[in-house]
Write a protein that binds this DNA or RNA. Structure first.
Length: 728
DNA sequence: CGGTAATTCGTTTTT
DNA sequence: CGAATTACCG
């Protein structure tokens, strides 16, 4: 194939990123700079021009959606020959590797993949076994810390070695027990998928070298979001041939809380002294005002300035709406959406609403329902995490992997069959003492004549379980699920309840069955592993976003995190308030705030033509009314780029009677004016008390109060409305 | 043991 | 406010 035809339509930098095929390459790809395009064409170039066999290329992404898109687009250029390129998420790739070689680590190939809930359950079990009080040692916190260790590549022994304080030492002990429990249950959690793969490679060089030979060219997408273990994994795979191409944008690093380490991308050149660097700085997505506004925000982070430019000089200013409360905010947005559709010829599918937290979707959903506007909420509670769906899948899991204690626990008395808490506790104790699985413990309890009544119940359950295990052998996932739901009486039990909730659950199970049927059809006889096992893998690794169909004509609602990588002609970024964006939990340190700022940048740069930012001065939060002040990020946007709409009480707040500039949180156009936004730490002058700095902000609007520590007179609380404050 | 009522509880983002 | 755990009674 001719290089010229393959690289046609690429700009010089994009072209360069394709043509530098050997050795380490860092592609710094700004928002909307055609990153995916480059990855796709690079793969096509490697195969079509350089003659690299497709199967020796590995491309790693973070979402299945991204992987699927990449695979599709490469196939579109090269045809079916490209299908043997290994395009996969980090997690799927590791599952594939571990399914093959996990035996070296002492697990068996049918290992279960534990999600967060299973993992949390295992932490609780670990606490029980150590006799630690879950009130004192919060399971959620412990799980979090263990996860962070795993993201950092720290094993239990290393965690214990590095533990400086008592709490950390205890946590490391729990980590060790937790890990033992996982092994007993033949299970790995999400973090393990990556960590154990690097362990496998580290301890068994012959395994590693097999994969090194196989994948001669490695590409990594969204490199700014890789954590330390992923870094290690990539290094292991590429250290020999060194044909490593990483693509990313430090300004879009928004997963630090999940262990992502921006240093991976920032230090790439230092890590690989012979690395070449290509910068993609031309933005093809957004109009000038959108790009300028987003850049102005992220420019407040320290670190190297990045320049993005666009030729799209069209488009008006971005809009700001300051709502009274969250309902007003939602009403405004939905009216805008309807107007855009009716009067500007937009379609609903062109519109997206981004928020910081999933809980913010509710008022928007209510308004959308009210006006019959079609919409899709992406993310939130995963379909596969709904109780009834998890129950059904737990049956399959336990049948496939009888050591899977979390699955067994779920199904044992579900539907109710007279096996209660005490029986389960006894089984747990027996398992812990005898070093056997919970299922084996249940078997011995079933044979115990001392507890005849419960033994009978157990025998019934075990007969059912063993019968199903024998039956589902050659079945497709859909057939197996149907059999399970019927034979266990699960479906019947639900149907008998007759409540609307139960009906909804039955409906969800039907959807699960339909999904399983689709899967069966697409994966008939593909592998030596059973179709049921493959189905369970898929279920564990698929995300809500992966199934999201952006082409359908519906308004999309999602978090700014989920929005990364997507683009929409019309974007609403809502809830631009202190405490929300930036989120209160992230404002402890400068790092957290900078990450929030990047998140804001990510949200803004999704917009192609129209961007509207909104905030509300009052909103309902877990039932109670709370007040908030506009986000500091709003004040970082040059005023000239913004058109204001909305219900500001009056212009009186902007100017005081004698014409001096009053304290104003609104967008400023210069650093001096930006200083006018109300925030903790701001220096102000009071006509009577003199100069001081704000130490707290309470309330909003007419009732907004500030606590100020004045240099001369100490701490006072003042009403903004009357205080006549001036920024210093 | 099972189901319901009462209470507590915690709230960021997710492969 | 809603999920999730706990308390209590049949």
């Amino acid at each position: 194939m001719l290089a010229s035809s393959l690289l046609e339509g690429l700009n010089p930098e994009q072209r360069q990123a394709c043509e530098i095929t050997e050795g380490p390459l860092l592609v710094l790809a700004g928002a909307g700079s055609g990153k995916t395009r480059v990855l796709v064409h690079r793969i096509a170039y490697l195969i079509g021009v350089c003659g690299i066999p497709p199967e020796s290329i590995l491309a790693v992404t973070f979402t299945n959606k991204a992987a699927g898109e990449m695979r599709e687009r490469v196939e579109k250029i090269l045809g079916p020959e490209a299908s043997s390129v290994f395009v996969s998420t980090f997690h799927s790739a590791c599952v594939r590797i571990l399914r093959r070689d996990v035996g070296h680590l002492g697990l068996s190939r049918g290992f279960a993949i534990y999600d967060e809930a299973d993992s949390l359950g295992t932490v609780k079990e670990a606490l029980r076994r150590q006799g630690l009080d879950p009130k004192l040692f919060e399971p959620r916190r412990l799980r979090w810390r263990i996860d962070q260790w795993k993201n950092a590549g720290v094993l239990p022994a290393q965690a214990a070695d590095g533990a400086a304080d008592l709490d950390t030492r205890r946590t490391a002990e729990v980590y060790a027990v937790y890990q033992r429990l996982l092994a007993e249950q033949n299970a790995l959690d999400f973090g393990d998928l990556i960590l154990q793969t690097t362990e496998l490679f580290g301890r068994f060089p012959e395994v590693l070298s097999w994969y090194r030979r196989r994948w001669q060219y490695v590409l990594v997408d969204e490199y700014q979001d890789t954590n330390r273990v992923q870094y290690r994994l990539v290094k292991q795979l590429s250290d020999e041939h060194r044909n490593l191409c990483v693509v990313g944008d430090p300004n879009q690093s928004i997963y630090g809380w999940r262990g992502a380490d921006v240093r991976n991308i920032l230090d790439f050149a230092r890590d690989h002294p012979d690395a070449q660097v290509v910068k993609l700085e031309r933005n093809y997505r957004s109009t000038r005002p959108i790009l300028d506004a987003a850049s102005a925000v992220v420019a407040n982070n320290r670190g190297p300035e990045t320049t993005l430019w666009t030729e799209r000089e069209d488009g008006g200013p971005i809009e700001l709406y300051e709502a009274v409360d969250d309902r007003d905010e939602a009403q405004f947005v939905i009216r805008q959406v309807m107007t855009a559709v009716r009067e500007e010829g937009r379609s609903f599918g062109e519109v997206a609403i981004f928020y910081r937290t999933n809980a913010q979707s509710r008022p928007f959903e209510e308004e959308l329902l009210k006006y019959d506007v079609p919409y899709a909420v992406v993310g939130g509670v995963r379909f596969y995490e709904r109780a009834e769906v998890k129950d059904a899948l737990a049956y399959l899991r336990a049948l496939v992997n009888p050591s899977d204690g979390m699955a067994l626990r779920r199904i044992l008395n579900n539907p109710p069959r007279g096996i209660g808490k005490t029986t389960l506790e006894r089984a747990d104790e027996l398992a812990a003492a005898g070093g056997c699985t919970v299922l084996e413990a249940l078997r011995s309890l079933a044979a115990d004549p001392a507890a005849a009544r419960v033994a009978l119940k157990l025998q019934e359950f075990l007969a059912l379980f063993d019968g199903l295990a024998a039956e589902i052998g050659g079945l497709t996932p859909a057939e197996a699920l149907a059999r399970v739901l019927e034979r266990t009486g699960y479906l019947e039990h639900l149907a008998r309840q007759g409540t609307p909730e139960a009906e909804a659950r039955v409906e969800n199970l039907r959807e699960l069955l339909a999904g399983a049927e689709d899967f069966s059809a697409a994966n008939a006889g593909a592998d030596e592993r059973s179709a049921i096992e493959l189905f369970l893998d898929q279920v564990a690794l698929v995300s809500d976003l992966d199934a999201y169909e952006s082409r359908s004509d519906r308004v999309s609602l999602m978090t700014a995190h989920t929005a990364k990588g997507l683009e929409f002609p019309v974007v609403f970024l809502v809830g631009m308030e202190e405490g929300l964006l930036p989120h209160a939990a992230a404002t402890r340190d400068a790092h957290g705030i900078e990450e929030e700022r990047r998140l804001c940048y990510v949200g803004m740069t999704r917009a192609m033509e129209r961007l509207t930012l909104t905030c509300a001065s009052e909103r309902r939060r877990y039932g109670a009314r709370t007040f908030s002040v506009p986000s500091r990020f709003l004040s970082e946007i040059p005023r000239a780029l913004v058109a204001r709409g909305g219900a500001r009480e009056s212009a009186a707040r902007d100017r005081t009677a004698d014409g001096r500039r009053a304290l104003d949180y609104s967008v400023g156009q210069s650093p001096a004016e930006e200083a006018g936004s109300i925030r903790v730490g701001l220096r102000v002058r009071h006509p009577i008390f003199g100069e001081g700095s704000i130490t707290a902000v309470r309330g909003a609007g007419q009732a907004q109060k500030l606590e100020i520590r004045f240099d001369r007179v100490g701490v006072k609380t003042v009403l903004v409305r009357f205080a006549n404050l001036e920024p210093v």
